[in-house]
Structures are given as structure tokens and as C-alpha cells.
Simulated assay, not measured.
Amino acid sequence: MKYSYTGYFENEVLRKRDYLKKRWCIDVINNPLKVEEQDNGRVRFWGVVKEVEGKFLRVVTLSDKTTIHNAFFDRGYKL
């Protein structure tokens, strides 16, 4: 599967969260613990990043599920 990134993700998210890796986002989309569609059509994916002490990463894509728009560690997510 080929993934792309919004300008917001490339210019804002990665700049502000320079610790994030695109590979982690793709891994979460491919192996999510939970998937949820937002009212605006965007899709949320949650997954664990083992390399970072098992923290939960939330990745938000556009409705196509392949264009990554946002990502952050979700401290409030519980299994």
C-alpha cells in the first residue's frame, strides 16, 4: 500500500513532534488496535509503538485511509 501525507502533517506535525517516525504511523494503520471514523470522514487508528515503551500512537488519516494527516501519542487511550 502506498501512503501519502498532507501538507499539515509534513509542515506542522513533523516539525512540532520531531520524534515521530512515518514508519510508526504506517505500522499503526496496518496493525491497529482500534479504528474509528470521525464525523468529518477522517479515520482514527490507534496502535502500540513498542520502541517507545509501548505508548499508544493515534494516527488520523483522510477518508481514503492512506493519506496521513495527524499523529500523536495518546496518553488518554486505554485498552
Rank of each mutant, 00 (worst) to 15 (best):
E51Y: 02
G7F: 12
T6R: 05
R15Q: 05
N70A: 03
W46Q: 13
L57P: 03
F72L: 05
N70I: 00
C25K: 02
E12D: 13
S63G: 09
K78V: 08
R42I: 04
L62P: 00
D74V: 04
W24D: 07
N40V: 14
K16I: 08
F72Y: 15
N11F: 09
T66D: 08
Y5F: 15
Q38C: 09
K34I: 04
D39M: 09
W24A: 08
C25W: 08
H69Y: 12
D39Q: 10
T61W: 05
V43L: 06
S63L: 07
Y8L: 02
D27H: 02
I68M: 11
V43D: 06
D27Q: 14
R42V: 01
K34P: 04
R23V: 10
R15W: 08
N30V: 07
I29C: 09
G7Q: 13
W24V: 00
H69Q: 10
V35W: 03
T6P: 02
G76Y: 08
Y3A: 04
K78G: 00
P32A: 14
E12F: 11
T67D: 04
N31V: 06
F56K: 05
K65Y: 03
P32K: 11
R42L: 07
T67N: 06
K34A: 07
L57G: 00
L33H: 09
R17S: 10
K55T: 11
K16Q: 15
R44T: 02
G76R: 13
R44N: 15
N11V: 06
V48H: 05
M1H: 07
I26M: 01
Y19W: 14
V49F: 07
V59G: 06
L62V: 06
Y77D: 06
T67S: 05
V48N: 08
K16F: 06
R15M: 11
F73K: 03
N11I: 02
L33V: 12
N31H: 13
A71W: 01
K65G: 01
K78M: 03
K22I: 13
Y77E: 02
N31M: 11
K2W: 09
S63Q: 13
M1T: 06
L57K: 08
I29D: 10
R44P: 00
G47S: 09
T67Q: 08
K34E: 12
L20G: 04
Q38D: 06
R58M: 12
V48K: 15
R44H: 15
F56Y: 15
H69E: 12
V59L: 10
F9K: 05
S4H: 14
R42S: 13
V48A: 08
K16S: 12
I68E: 00
V28Y: 10
E53L: 10
R23T: 11
M1I: 04
R42G: 07
R58P: 00
K16W: 01
G7W: 12
F9N: 02
Q38R: 15
A71P: 07
Q38M: 14
K2E: 10
T61E: 00
T67E: 04
Y3V: 01
G47V: 11
V43I: 12
S4I: 11
E12S: 11
K55Q: 15
Y5T: 05
G47P: 01
Y3T: 03
K78Q: 12
E12I: 13
G7E: 14
C25E: 09
V52K: 05
T61M: 09
I26T: 00
K22Q: 10
E10Q: 07
W46L: 08
V43G: 01
L79K: 12
N40K: 06
R75E: 12
